[in-house]
Amino acid sequence: MDDPQLTDDEVVSSVLGGRDRDFEILVRRYSQRIIHFVARMTEDGDEARAIAQDVFLKIFEHLPYYRRENNFSAFIFKIARNMTLNWLKRRKRTVFFSRLLGHELDRLPLRRDPPRLSPMEQGEREQALTRQLRRLPVEQRLALVLKVYLEFSYKQIAGVTGWSVPKIETLISRAKARLRKGIRLQESGNEPVVEAREK
C-alpha cells in the first residue's frame, strides 16, 4: 500500500484530488510515530491509541488547510501535540476534581501495555522512569519526547511547538537534569511525595 516513491505532499495532493484511500499511506507512514509520541506524553497505551485515532481523523479533516511546503511531519505533529495537550489538561482537571472528592485518581497504577519479557529489576526501572517522565512539566516532556523518541532536531521541534531554539535547548536540558535527579532520589528511596506542578 505504501509507495515510498511518493512524497507526503504528493500523497496529500492525491487525497485532496479525490483518492481518499491514499490517506492510508499517510496513516501507515506515521501511525507508529504518532502513537509512540502520544503514548510517551500520556503514559497510557490505550488512551494513546484512541487519541492517535482522533489525530488522524482530524488530519484528514484539515488536509485542505495544509500548505504544501514539504513539511507534512510538522503539520501532523502540531495536531498531535494540540490534541495530546488538550487531553492532558482534561486529565489534570479530572485529577483535581477527583482529589476534591477524596479520590486519588493519579495514584492509581498506570495503565500500560504489557511489559516486554524482562527481569524484574528491568521492569521496576522502567516503571520508575515512566513515573519520572510523567512528573515532568508538560513543556519539558513535550520537547524531550520529540527529541528522544522522534529524533526531531531543535529546529523541527520549533516547527511543531512554535518555541525558539534556545528555549527548546533549555527545556530539554532541564528535563534531563530533572529526570536524573528524580531517578537518583527514587533509587535511593528518597522520592519526593509532592508531584511536580504541570505547566
Partner: peptide
C-alpha cells in the same frame, strides 16, 4: 545512561487494524 534508559522503554503496541479502523471512520 539516561538516554539509553529512555530509549529502552517499551513502545506502545500498534494495533494491526489501526489504519483499517481509521479508513473506516473517514
Amino acid at each position: 545512561d539516561l538516554e539509553q534508559r529512555l530509549l529502552g522503554l517499551p513502545p506502545a503496541a500498534v494495533d494491526p487494524f489501526f489504519s483499517t479502523r481509521i479508513m473506516a471512520g473517514l
